[in-house]
Amino acid sequence: MELNVSTASQGGHAVVTATGELDLYTAPRLQAALAGLLRDQADHIVVDLSGVEFCDSTGMNVLLAAMKRLKEQGGSLELAAPRPAVKRILQVTGLDTVFTVTEAAPVLDAG
């Protein structure tokens, strides 16, 4: 399965939308998108997981590393709308207490 990643930015806020499976083979795509936003000095990144059907430890590590770097820059990372399978991984690993997780998919203002 593929992983499609798209980003949208507005001011210092950015939304990363991932769809598909986030695993050892596809995680570099998400990592590259997040690294680009970090370079662009985004101060708040929301990762929309509503289209992610599977996420393994590699995917979680990419999200953790991005959150750590963003916090070091004074920013924040939020996970939005994880599907039940991804939510279960967050709960089993205890990462649901590390990440800010919201139920609703993110919306950037149209202007």
Rank of each mutant, 00 (worst) to 15 (best):
M1P: 14
M1W: 02
M1L: 11
L3K: 03
N4E: 05
V5L: 03
S6M: 15
T7L: 12
A8G: 03
A8Y: 06
S9V: 10
Q10Y: 12
Q10V: 07
Q10L: 14
G11I: 05
G11L: 03
G11C: 03
G12R: 15
G12Q: 14
G12E: 15
G12M: 02
H13W: 08
A14S: 11
A14W: 11
V15C: 14
V16W: 01
T17C: 06
T17E: 14
T17N: 11
A18I: 09
A18K: 14
T19L: 09
T19G: 00
G20Y: 02
E21K: 04
E21R: 13
E21V: 09
L22Q: 04
L22E: 01
L22H: 05
L22V: 10
L24R: 08
Y25G: 11
A27F: 01
A27N: 12
P28L: 03
R29N: 04
R29T: 02
R29P: 00
R29H: 07
Q31E: 15
Q31P: 00
Q31S: 10
Q31G: 05
A32N: 11
A32K: 12
A32H: 10
A33M: 14
A33G: 06
A35D: 14
G36E: 10
L37A: 05
L38G: 01
R39N: 08
R39G: 09
R39M: 07
R39Y: 02
H44L: 14
H44V: 06
V46L: 07
V46F: 08
V47D: 02
V47C: 08
D48K: 01
S50D: 13
V52K: 07
E53Y: 00
E53V: 02
E53G: 07
D56T: 12
S57N: 02
S57K: 03
T58V: 08
G59F: 06
G59R: 04
V62N: 05
V62H: 03
V62Y: 04
L63M: 06
L63N: 08
L63Q: 01
L63C: 03
L64F: 10
L64P: 00
L64C: 10
A65L: 11
A65I: 12
A66I: 07
A66C: 15
A66P: 08
A66Q: 10
K68I: 09
R69I: 03
R69N: 12
R69D: 13
L70A: 04
K71W: 03
E72W: 09
Q73I: 04
Q73V: 06
Q73E: 12
G75T: 13
G75W: 14
S76F: 03
S76Q: 13
L77D: 06
L77C: 04
L79S: 10
L79C: 06
A80K: 00
P82W: 03
P82A: 02
P82E: 03
P82G: 01
R83M: 13
P84Y: 05
A85D: 00
V86G: 05
V86Y: 06
V86N: 05
V86S: 08
K87W: 07
R88H: 15
R88Q: 12
I89Y: 09
I89N: 11
I89T: 11
L90G: 06
Q91L: 08
V92R: 07
D96F: 10
T97A: 14
T97Q: 14
V98S: 10
T100A: 13
T100N: 04
V101R: 12
V101S: 05
T102H: 13
E103A: 15
A105H: 08
A105D: 07
A105N: 07
A105T: 15
A105M: 07
V107R: 14
V107D: 10
D109E: 09
D109K: 15
A110P: 15
